[in-house]
């Protein structure tokens, strides 16, 4: 304030100072983030189920676990397609786990997924691997 340049136009003095610029940048970031959230919060979780040899598993039961205050509970189940892929379209949470199981093929470990916001669309990078099926 004391280093104010009084030769500058009044609008410049009013707008181009840190008390305006910092909140403006924060508001812009908030708006940008919310736009990103709105366009990416369909609750879609995608992935693939493979067996121990790396082959896709069709018909595996995939479970979506959602954190419920103190523990994880099953929110939804789906079945993997012929290419082993699966998709959930109704994930409501930001803290989830997915697991897969098929009789005779085994079961996968529960994979923990942390999302940046609730219902964020997410594609599982590593496939769920069924083991110990004998």
């Amino acid at each position: 304030m004391n280093n104010e340049d009084f030769s500058a136009p009044k609008w410049k003095r009013l707008l181009l100072n840190r008390f305006v610029l910092v909140p403006a940048v924060l508001i812009l970031l908030t708006v940008g983030w919310n736009l990103w959230v709105v366009t990416h919060d369909h609750g879609i979780v995608e992935g693939q189920v493979l067996d121990a040899t790396g082959a896709p598993v069709e018909g595996a039961e995939v479970k979506l676990w959602v954190f419920n205050f103190t523990t994880f509970v099953v929110k939804a189940t789906t079945t993997s397609r012929p290419d082993g892929s699966f998709e959930f379209a109704n994930n409501p949470s930001h803290n989830i786990q997915v697991s897969a199981e098929k009789p005779g093929k085994g079961r996968s470990a529960r994979v923990a997924i942390r999302l940046y916001f609730a219902s964020e669309d997410f594609v599982l990078k590593d496939p769920l691997r069924l083991t110990d099926g004998t």
């Binding site: 930001h94 803290n95 916001f117």
Partner: peptide, 11 residues
Amino acid sequence: PNPFYYVDVWY
């Protein structure tokens, strides 16, 4: 480091 504890608080 990750920001997920902040997400937990938010929700």
